[in-house]
Write a protein that binds this DNA or RNA. Structure first.
Lengths: 213, 213
DNA sequence: CGATGTGAACGCGTTCACAGCG
DNA sequence: CGCTGTGAACGCGTTCACATCG
């Protein structure tokens, strides 16, 4: 199979979202043109992206909405359940915990940790907040592969090291820090401060830099 | 001035962060090599990025940490105060409101809005939560140029339209939706669901290269 | 010398144009 | 005929290599 670029993965997520919307609208067939306009890209780009994974469309017709949706779910690894650990039960952690979209895509938060003794023992939806001292045993016991890291920047690298040592294979990092992990571990970061700086840069530039993500 | 790419802006944010760290460590001079290794990029990339905005380094020596920090702040539009409106006082809104890094970079939340009558009138740090009915007058009165949109996907486009009509020039969107705005308005999105999907994609790729159902 | 600044080469993702097939 | 699938062309960001200068 050909190499798949990072931007392509991002667009696949977008296509999947559009397809889910079309499903709800009862639409059964969609053209690359239609999918492109809804996703803010081009028809050629849509076809190129999809062609990396197979031939899903029917010439002269378009793509089957339910068919393509199922395929994209599978490609993105969403056709299974993922056990997720939430590390850091602060405000960001709380926001993520309540984020419905994640659960719907199969990402289930099965453990929550915090270092603050005042928070440990608290319950969020029948899930007890554990002390970080229990990190390793709980991760192992529940077979958790993905961690969401929502701790202060100063604690992020240390926690990441422990997560990796405990067998976590993917980390979504909300701390404004670059994490150093082995190449076998995937890290994606959500950096709100950096995004705000993109905005202010665009404003002082006076550009219309329509880099709408 | 030459064209500046989107990835470059992201790296400038990163460099600035590293420089702030070096400042605290009392380091006064830094080479492109050192800055690169801390930022996870290459020395040539650092020099190329910076050269787009001028010549800040001294040959044979490196860059002045305080000097470069000041310059980057200015380039990124961080040498002034920005009035920010927070639209949506849910969990994500609350997390953002408490995010110290933003305030430190000059992004001050000067207004909070929500549609929920139960929340309207509540106070967050001496800031009253306004009804969305007051959106337009309050934005105008306070001269707010940047909005953080933390509302459900279904309400995002409608709110974005109102924000743009009210003169907002930049939007940081947390809703998992593409926003349609005029080209003069900058939108950046933080899409946690999409980031999680990047992780699951990487994980299934690692184990099952076919992506088959 | 040492590290910057930069034109040139390179690689890669996007766009184009059209062949292929229902 | 319509729309997909795809090799080729293109543009752009990254990397390289070295001239440049403190």
């Amino acid at each position: 199979m050909k190499k798949v670029s990072e931007p392509t993965i991002g667009r696949l997520s977008l296509y999947l979202r559009m397809l889910s919307g079309l499903m709800e609208s009862g639409v059964r067939t969609v053209s690359s043109e239609e999918l492109a306009s809804r996703s803010g890209t081009t028809a050629a780009q849509v076809r190129k992206d999809l062609s990396l994974f197979g031939t899903f469309g029917k010439r002269g017709l378009g793509y089957s909405v339910p068919g393509l949706e199922t395929r994209l779910r599978s490609i993105l690894g969403l056709s299974r359940r993922w056990s997720v650990a939430l590390v850091g039960a602060g405000r960001i952690g709380a926001a993520l915990f309540g984020y419905e979209s994640l659960r719907r895509q199969g990402f289930c938060i099965d453990a929550v940790f915090d270092v603050d003794p005042a928070k440990v023992g608290e319950r969020w939806n029948d899930l007890e907040i554990h002390s970080d001292a229990c990190l390793e045993p709980v991760l192992a016991e529940r077979g958790i592969e993905i961690a969401v890291l929502a701790v202060p920047a100063s604690a992020a690298q240390g926690m990441a090291d422990r997560l990796v040592a405990a067998g976590v294979r993917a980390i979504l990092n909300f701390a404004p820090t670059r994490l150093d992990v082995p190449p076998s571990v995937v890290v994606k970061s959500v950096d709100m401060a950096a995004e705000m700086e993109r905005l202010s840069y665009a404003l002082v530039r006076g550009t219309d830099a329509s880099g709408a993500v």
